[in-house]
Design a protein around this nucleic acid. Structure first.
Lengths: 205, 205
DNA sequence: GGGAAAAGCGGAGGGGCCTCCGCCAATTCG
DNA sequence: CGAATTGGCGGAGGCCCCTCCGCTTTTCCC
């Protein structure tokens, strides 16, 4: 629709460039307000906060909330996408410091730690992730890209298998988060991540 | 329809022994009716059928449905527990025919095939499984028991690792089902199951 | 057999989710 | 400078979930 300027490659802006439509300013303030309120709400209440409350507290109508964020998951993603992005971005640094297999495990641990602090979020995202089509194509792509980078390096150094689709690893990882979501066993999650790493190691024939 | 022999210890019967309370007969008929209708409904409509419809079609009030099955997941479990049980029970036969690692993969495949035909079910169980406390302790226990049996055998023959908790394998497996639930990639699920098996093979040092 | 008590039934009702549509404010053009 | 147009707002309303409570049916005890 709107012709986005190809300014920064590889970093698609969340919002369409800058003020081309002044009226947007109002809309944008609403949007950011909603995100801020939602962040607070999600942090406080562990799970399902009535969206109506968020709308009211942000001083907008429920209709406006739904225009900006058509589904509950969309709102959640908006709230956490920056944080998730930071995690995805942290992969290269880990790759510089550690061998790929260790880096991958560390990176997964980092991801897991984040997810652990946002159990409420996971509870909400669960449906969206699992039923697939609804949500998070962007975030998920970045996660997969991070994994792919690590896998590629690992393939070169021989510490990780070459014949694994990064997408599969993402799916597996999310699966672990999904199914450990509420069973509250922090070490179990760690063990499962270890298992994933084991699966990704080349079998020395 | 009532095969409940008190034979095997450790296998708690789903229904409390047999007819001690005749009145129960009426109640039981309602219950079974609900299950039958629900089975048909779940098979037909891929996902969320209004529980009210099921109640109406079964000729009972919504209140009765909720008394018998306090949550949606409880109803789903009731519908599929016998089938799931059959899968769990099929493990020993596979163990007789194949080496443990192969048997485990085959068994997982069987489970997966079942889940695949019941995507609607998974969609519903998702919440229950993932948010843990709500549902399916019984069924899950049987699944874990089946896995444990295979793992034990595999440990003896040396084709599977000894240091893995069966519960972890269950969690992992459910995680795969959870996160592949709707992304409709039948082969991907297979690849992920292969990865699990790889993770469970002893690393030949 | 008859009456009391228990067991079970069913639907009304309150709450949240999401959609749809009429109204206001900013923008643009004559 | 004023009027048509467009972008955006907000809440009323329909749907489903689940709970709660008065009513019917069955059983038990004399």
């Amino acid at each position: 629709m709107s012709p986005s300027e190809p300014a920064s490659p590889g970093v698609p802006a969340d919002q369409p460039a800058d003020a081309e439509r002044p009226l947007r300013a109002h809309a944008r303030r609403n949007r950011e307000n909603l995100i801020a309120v939602a962040r607070a709400a999600f942090a406080a209440a562990d799970d399902t906060v009535p969206l109506e409350n968020i709308a009211r507290e942000a001083g907008v109508g429920i209709g406006t909330l739904y225009r900006h964020f058509p589904t509950r998951e969309a709102l959640v993603e908006a709230v956490y996408s920056t944080e998730l992005d930071a995690i995805a971005t942290s992969a290269p640094a880990l790759l510089d410091q550690f061998p790929p297999d260790v880096a991958l495990r560390a990176w997964m641990g980092r991801y897991e730690a984040f997810v652990a602090t946002k159990r409420g979020m996971v509870d909400i995202l669960r449906a969206g992730w699992a039923s697939g089509k609804i949500a998070t194509p962007t975030t998920r792509k970045r996660i997969t890209a991070a994994i792919e980078a690590i896998l590629t390096k690992g393939t070169e150094t021989g510490s990780l298998r070459a014949d694994v689709d990064p997408e599969d690893v993402t799916t597996m990882l999310l699966g672990v988060f999904l199914s450990t979501a509420a069973s509250d066993t922090p070490e179990q999650t760690g063990r499962l991540l270890d298992l994933i790493i084991d699966a990704l190691r080349p079998k020395n024939e």
